[in-house]
Nucleic acid binder design. Structure first.
Lengths: 208, 208
DNA sequence: GTATCATGTGACTAGATGGTCACATTGCGA
DNA sequence: TCGCAATGTGACCATCTAGTCACATGATAC
């Protein structure tokens, strides 16, 4: 966590540091990011920076925590409202809220994507660590329940399917970013139809 | 391309340099890899290295070309033998040959994975560049043909589905690596069943 | 006015990096 | 044995990195 000094400085300055850090980490991976660049963009001195944060990792973890906190606000709302409505509805809402988060917090989302991609790095182990399979395990439980309910084929490879759904969520974000980048389209319900397409594919397949 | 000198040196030495470079790039991304480390591991001098290669990029492109060439040998064989057997069979064989390549050339495959992950880096643009969507476009054509043949639903999102299949191939490799790492299982036909599972999911869905 | 303490500063360190270059060694043909 | 060209070398350069530290400035208390 940042030192107390960081929370004592003027809010304007604090926001500036947060903003520039988010910007840096949304462009560069942890390893390739640069404290020098951040302090230069913030127009604060190196010495000041190290009075606010223990080190680079301290700053990174703080920024990640901001991102996680914000994303949780989106996803939790979806989870709570759909918890009793079965697999498809829950997954759909998780995906949609994930997309919405990514659209409304492009840089924070990008930081997450970069971290997830670098899943062999030391910082990944440190930051994600034992929570690595949290999402996958969650999907696994949902699937198992739905198999019992007779909604999902009992002979599918649950482990692999959970992994795949998790990957799809990540891929979906990337696809979404790519479309958004090229087309300059505004985010709309139309974009969320992608989620419906995806879930339809997952449940019913593409074969006719 | 490497300079002529590189192809003049003793084969033993050349193989050594190739091997150590493959090792380095399979662990570190292009940006994080180190020529210093490579020459140290090869026990050649820095000066020698720069008599073989123009620069770091030159070496990297060469190693990538080795990897692509080898992978093509696997995939092309599959393509040629299955070209007339329809979408499912072709995709299955591409996936299977991809897995086989990854298993038998773990480090080369890892280099490819690292490059694909860094799809925002300068080196990605340089090396992959305009071939970025080659695989996706290929899947797109296959799907369109199969829609005409009545084998695939005509109302699916072709663009998105192609993208997804491409992602699946990448995810599959990663999943495969992860399983392989943890279980110390030998590669077997059993592993290839994953591809069958995946394709069954794609065609028929997981719903019952 | 002075003492004290929090905050701000940027030159500096040690360790990397990719790449260069003057020079040393080797091999080979005459 | 000489001469020349190909190959090999590692100290060195400029440039980057994260992190430190002696000092400067500012604010508050008395």
């Amino acid at each position: 966590m940042p030192k107390n000094t960081f929370f004592n400085i003027k809010e304007e300055k604090r926001k500036m540091i947060e903003e520039e850090s988010i910007n840096e980490f949304s462009i560069y991976s942890y390893e390739n990011s640069s404290i020098n660049r951040i302090v230069e963009n913030c127009k604060i001195s190196k010495g000041s920076f190290y009075q606010y944060f223990e080190n680079k990792e301290d700053l990174y973890r703080y920024i990640i925590s901001l991102s996680v906190e914000k994303k949780m606000k989106y996803v939790n709302a979806a989870l709570i409202s759909e918890i009793d409505n079965g697999f498809i509805k829950i997954i759909k809402e998780i995906f949609k809220s994930g997309l919405k988060f990514a659209y409304e917090n492009e840089k924070l989302a990008s930081i997450g994507v970069l971290l997830m991609k670098n899943n062999n790095s030391e910082i990944y182990r440190k930051v994600i660590g034992q929570n690595k399979n949290m999402a996958i395990d969650f999907y696994k439980k949902l699937i198992e329940i739905e198999i019992e309910n007779g909604e999902i084929k009992p002979d599918i490879n649950v482990e692999f399917t959970s992994y795949l759904i998790n990957s799809m969520m990540i891929n979906l974000s990337e696809y979404f970013f790519e479309i958004n980048k090229n087309n300059e389209k505004k985010f709309s319900e139309e974009m969320l139809f992608l989620v419906d397409d995806l879930m339809d594919m997952l449940i019913n397949g593409i074969g006719s």
